[in-house]
Amino acid sequence: MTSPRMIQIASGKGGVGKTWLSVTLAEALAAMHRNVLLFDGDLGLANVDVQLGLSPALDLGSVIAGRAQIEEAITTYEIPSVAGATGGVKFDVLAGKSGSGVLSALTRSEIASIARALTRLSERYAHVVTDLAAGLDQSVMTLCTPGSTTLVVVTDEPTSLTDAYAFIKLMSLQDAQADIRVVVNFANDRDHAWRTYSALTNACKTFLGINPPLAGFIPRDDLVRDAIRHQSPILFRHPQAKASEAVRKLARELLVPLPQAAPQGALRRGA
């Protein structure tokens, strides 16, 4: 398996740090000199642009309204370097329509056409990172394009675990070959992360016959909140933060092919 081109960040439940991970993963991949597009797929409540402090003149709403081609709605976001205002890495952003809710009324065929347009766009990029909406409704599942790598963000809260499980179940039913991986957020430590991951994957193994691997975990880190509040990329504002290092590690490992020989029972259906 080569490094994933289409990367979707999902969660089932809202409020688990999905958008933050999407933004930060895009930054981390861009910092590794990868050509990245960050797409705000949370059509009902887009806020990638808010986290980045962007005010794009054109966005997905402009495309849907017929005022722009999808390529024209792409904004380049340049991360300033730690040392100064220039020389930073950059990545492209296709923003939603922040706070308007206008995109939540799209029909499934319109969403499917967005997914197709995104697939076409992906040919120009090494990676397209999509921030999917929370929930399991059709707009989320329609944006899940076949062949993508889906990172399911989960925390130790029971509601997060059950919603992440429901998402994985629907995703695997929609695409039996789906590449689904788990990211544990707000982990107190490695053991805590592993317990959370194991709880989710034990259920997946028993009930679904699949064993999604752990892509990584993000430690609980107050500096994340600080970066979000300042609408500033954490990799720039707090490059040494534990969460920054965790996302960089996640990005590095995403580029490494998954081992072919899976553990016993892994990725096996119908067990």
């Binding site: 429901a166 629907l170 039913l173």
Partner: peptide, 12 residues
């Protein structure tokens, strides 16, 4: 049918 049953089942 299978997709609807799966969705109905997944939501608890």
């Amino acid at each position: 049918r299978d997709a609807l049953v799966a969705a109905a089942s997944a939501l608890g």
